[in-house]
Design a binder for these strands. Structure first.
Length: 718
DNA sequence: CTCTCCCT
C-alpha cells in the first residue's frame, strides 16, 4: 500500500528530507522545534511509505488526552480521512483504531500498558515522543524502556524525540543521537521586565501591572498566577476597576462551564482579562490573547521521602516556562509580555523545569521495573536517574503492602500491577475482597483518584459525603459532570473485579478501614488536650483545613493531605474505628526518662506507626533492645541530649572545608543531622554507660567521632 | 491564603 503524503506550508516541512534520510540507516533522532512548527502532525505522516516500516506501526506519544485526539484528527484530515482509518488514537475509555490503522496516537498510560504486554514492541517500528521537554515521568520511563529494548532485542526499533526546549546536548550525548532543528512560526512578543517582586504581595502587584497593561495595549490579557488563592484575591482587586472589561478566572478546580466561559470570546464584545494558573500554559488555549502578564511563580507538588507525603510549593518558574507563557501572546499577531521580575533575576532562573521523576512518588515506577525483572534500575539509560531516597521510600511502601519481597515481585504484587491505578489503591481494592467490601472500595478508589467533585465549603472534608453523592448520582437523582467522570472510573474497576454496582447505604467506618489499607501511615489520632491537632502514624502532625463534625472525631483515616512545614493540612478523610486496625498494631521498645529519678527506663509500646496506643515499663530489656531504644531517642532529640562543645563544632566545620578542598577524598558526613541518623554505629559501643539522661552529655563527641575516621583523611583536616 | 498539572 502506497500512501499519498501531503505537502504543507508548515515550517517543519523544510526538515522532512533530512529526517527521512537520517532514518535510512540510523535508529534514533532528536527534533527540536518550537510550538506551531507542525511537528506533531506532519512528521509522523512522512514515514508512512518508508521501507523500514515493514508493515509495523508508528506510535505517537502525547502527554494529554485532548492533544492525542486533536492531533490524530488533524493528521486524518491531511490524508482526507476520518480518525480511526490510517491514523487512530487510544486514550483511556476511548479508542478509535481499525485494521487499516498504521499510526496510533496514544497517551502515556496507554504506552506503559503496551510495554507491559509486549516488552519488545514487536508490532512497532517507530515510537515518537512528542512534547518531550515536559519531562513527565511516564515519558522518561517509556524512553528508558524503549532504549533498553533497542539495546537488547530490538536494534531496529526507531525512536524520534521531539522537543521544544530542554537540555538537548545532554540527551543527544546519552542517546548518541543527532539533533535536527526546525524553525517555528510565532509572531514576535515584546518583553517588559517590571522589576523586583515579592511573592507575598502578588495579588496587589499583579493587579497594578494588569491595569497598566490594559491602558497600553489592545486585545485580551492573559495573567499567570500560582494558585487559586492569588487568583481570587487579584480578581477582587480588579473587579469593576477596568472599563468595558470582564475578569475571568481559570484553574483546574473550576467547574467545566466556568472554564469554558474563560476560553471563549466575550458574548457582549467586552475585553477579557483571564487570571489563570499554569493550566493556560499548555493545556488550554485562549483565543484572542495579545498581552500576557506573568507573575513568575507557579505551584509544584514535591514528594517528601521522609514522610511519604507530598506538599505544594510556590516556586519560581523556569526560563522555558516563562518563554512558553510569553509565547501565548504571539499566536495570532505580534504581542506584549510583562514579566514581573527584573532582568538580573531572569539570569538566576533555572533554565529548564525540574523533571517529574525527581520530585514525585516512585512506587509505580519501582513496581514496574520489578515486574520487568530489572534488578538494578540504575543500570538503565536514564536522562535523569530517579533519586535514591525516593526509590528507597518506594521500596518500603511496596514491601509494606506485600507487593515486594526482598526486591522480588510477589503474587500479590503482580495482581497490584495488573490494576490500572496507583499501587496503594490497587492494594486497597484487593484487600477489599477479603472484607467483602469491593463495591465500596471501587467507589473510594475512583473518588480519590479523580478531582474532588464537591467543594469543601459545600460538603466539608468527609470523603463519605462524596460516596453518598456518587450513589445519589447513580440512582439518577444526582447531577454533575464531575460525578460522570468518577462513575466512569468506578465502573471500570467494577468491570475488572467483576462485581455489581451498589447504591445502598454503607458504613463510614468501613471507608476508614479501607483507606487505612491504602495509606496506613496516614491513620491519625486527635492529640489529647489539643483538639484541633492530629498525629499521623508517620509521626507528623496535621490539622483539618475546615472544621466540621469529622474534625471532632478522635480517629480518622486521611486520604488527601498537604504536608506543610510544622502542621500539615487535611483536605479529605473518613472516621475510623481503631479496633478495626488490629493487624496494623506493632510492638516497639522505647526509652523514657523518669522525671523524678532521672533514670533511663525502657518501655514496651503498642503502636500504629508512630502513634502510641499503650506504653508500659519493661522489666528486663536485653542489651540490644536497650541500645536500640537509646539510639531511637538520640536520633529524635540528640540535639538537646548530647553536648556539642565549641571545639567539636569547629572540628565539624573543618571537616566540611576539607571535603570542599579535596573533592575526591571520601570524607564521612559529620554534620549534626548525619551524625544523629548514624548513631547506631557510633553510640552503641557506649550504650551500657548511659544510665541516666546526663550521661549522654558526658560523651566526648570529638574523641568518639574522630576515632572512627581514617588517619589519612584526618591529616587533610587543618 | 482551601489544592498546580497530568495519566492507566
Amino acid at each position: 500500500m502506497k500512501y499519498t503524503i501531503p505537502t504543507t506550508t508548515l515550517p517543519v516541512q523544510e526538515i522532512v528530507p533530512q529526517v527521512i534520510n537520517h532514518f535510512q540507516d540510523n535508529t534514533t533522532l532528536i527534533v527540536k522545534a518550537p510550538p506551531g512548527a507542525g511537528k506533531s502532525t506532519l512528521l509522523p505522516l512522512t514515514f508512512l511509505n518508508e521501507s523500514w516500516l515493514e508493515g509495523k506501526k508508528i506510535i505517537v506519544l502525547e502527554p494529554r488526552r485532548l492533544a492525542a485526539k486533536t492531533i490524530a484528527t488533524r493528521m486524518s484530515q491531511l490524508l482526507g480521512e476520518q480518525a480511526g482509518e490510517t491514523v487512530g488514537y487510544r486514550i483511556r475509555f476511548e479508542t478509535k483504531i481499525s485494521d487499516k490503522t498504521r499510526i496510533e496516537v496514544v497517551t502515556e498510560g496507554i504506552l506503559t500498558r503496551m510495554l507491559q504486554t509486549d516488552n519488545t514492541l514487536k508490532d512497532v517500528a517507530l515510537v515518537i515522543f512528542d512534547e518531550f521537554h515536559e519531562r513527565s515521568i511516564h515519558a522518561d520511563v517509556a524512553l528508558a524502556l524503549c532504549r533498553e529494548a533497542q539495546l537488547t532485542k530490538r536494534n531496529d526499533l526507531r525512536l524520534l524525540i521531539m522537543s521544544a526546549t530542554m537540555d538537548l546536548p545532554e540527551l543527544s550525548a546519552k542517546l548518541k543521537a543527532k539533533i535536527i532543528e526546525s524553525e517555528g512560526r510565532q509572531y514576535p512578543v515584546e518583553i517588559h521586565y517590571t522589576g523586583v517582586t515579592d511573592m507575598h504581595l502578588l495579588p496587589e502587584l499583579t493587579a497594578r501591572v494588569v491595569s497598566k497593561a490594559s491602558k497600553d495595549n489592545k486585545g485580551d490579557i492573559l495573567v499567570f498566577l500560582p494558585g487559586q488563592a492569588e487568583i481570587n484575591a487579584c480578581r477582587d482587586l480588579l473587579d469593576n476597576k477596568l472599563s468595558n472589561t470582564v475578569v475571568h478566572t481559570l484553574y483546574g478546580q473550576l467547574p467545566f462551564a466556568q472554564q469554558q466561559a474563560a476560553l471563549l470570546p466575550d458574548q457582549t464584545g467586552k475585553r477579557k482579562v483571564v487570571l489563570a494558573t499554569s493550566i493556560a500554559e499548555t493545556s488550554l488555549t485562549i483565543e484572542g490573547v495579545t498581552t500576557v502578564v506573568d507573575s513568575g511563580f507557579g505551584k509544584r507538588s514535591k514528594f517528601d521521602p521522609q514522610s511519604g507525603l507530598s506538599r505544594l510549593e510556590t516556586v519560581n518558574i523556569s526560563v522555558d516556562a516563562a518563554d512558553q507563557r510569553a509565547g501565548r501572546a504571539g499566536r495570532l499577531s505580534a504581542g506584549t509580555c510583562y514579566r514581573m521580575w527584573s532582568k538580573a533575576q531572569h539570569e538566576t532562573l533555572q533554565k529548564h523545569h525540574q523533571p517529574e521523576i525527581e520530585i514525585t512518588d516512585l512506587s509505580s515506577l519501582v513496581l514496574e521495573m520489578a515486574v520487568w525483572g530489572i534488578s538494578n534500575i540504575y543500570n538503565m539509560v536514564w536522562l535523569t536517574p530517579p533519586p535514591q531516597s525516593h526509590v528507597k521510600q518506594a521500596k518500603e511502601t511496596l514491601h509494606y503492602i506485600d507487593a515486594l519481597d526482598r526486591n522480588k515481585v510477589t503474587a500479590h504484587g503482580k495482581k497490584i500491577h495488573q490494576l490500572p491505578c496507583n499501587p496503594r489503591i490497587a492494594h486497597m481494592l484487593l484487600m477489599a475482597e477479603k472484607l467483602e467490601q469491593e463495591a465500596l472500595a471501587t467507589d473510594i478508589a475512583a473518588i480519590i483518584e479523580e478531582k474532588d467533585p464537591l467543594t469543601i465549603k459545600e460538603a466539608g472534608v468527609d470523603i463519605n459525603e462524596r460516596i453518598k453523592a456518587l450513589r445519589r448520582f447513580r440512582r439518577n437523582d444526582g447531577k454533575g459532570r464531575a460525578f460522570g467522570l468518577i462513575e466512569r472510573v468506578a465502573r471500570s474497576y467494577r468491570d475488572l473485579m467483576e462485581i455489581e454496582v451498589e447504591n445502598e447505604g454503607f458504613d463510614s467506618f468501613m471507608t476508614g478501614l479501607l483507606l487505612a489499607h491504602a495509606y496506613p501511615e496516614r491513620v491519625a489520632f486527635a492529640r489529647p488536650g489539643n483538639q484541633s491537632q492530629f498525629q499521623l502514624a508517620n509521626g507528623t502532625y496535621a490539622q483539618f483545613s475546615h472544621k466540621d463534625s469529622l474534625s471532632r472525631e478522635s480517629w480518622v483515616s486521611v486520604s488527601h493531605i498537604d504536608a506543610r512545614e510544622g502542621t500539615g493540612k487535611i483536605f479529605m478523610a473518613s472516621p475510623l474505628n481503631p479496633k478495626d486496625l488490629k493487624g496494623m498494631v506493632k510492638t516497639a521498645v522505647s526509652v523514657h526518662w523518669d522525671l523524678i529519678s532521672n533514670d533511663l527506663i525502657v518501655h514496651t509500646e503498642l503502636r500504629i506507626g508512630k502513634i502510641v496506643l499503650k506504653s508500659f515499663p519493661m522489666d528486663d530489656p536485653t542489651d540490644e533492645e536497650r541500645s536500640r531504644a537509646l539510639c531511637d531517642v538520640v536520633k529524635k532529640d540528640g540535639r538537646e541530649l548530647l553536648h556539642f562543645t565549641p571545639e567539636f563544632e569547629q572540628w565539624q566545620a573543618a571537616m566540611f572545608r576539607a571535603q570542599q578542598q579535596h573533592p575526591l577524598a571520601q570524607f564521612p558526613d559529620v554534620d549534626t543531622e548525619s551524625l544523629l541518623l548514624t548513631c547506631d554505629d557510633w553510640l552503641t559501643p557506649f550504650a551500657d554507660e548511659i544510665e541516666e539522661k546526663d550521661d549522654l552529655k558526658k560523651l566526648d563527641l570529638l574523641q568518639i567521632i574522630s576515632a572512627r575516621i581514617p588517619k589519612e583523611l584526618l591529616k587533610l583536616v587543618d
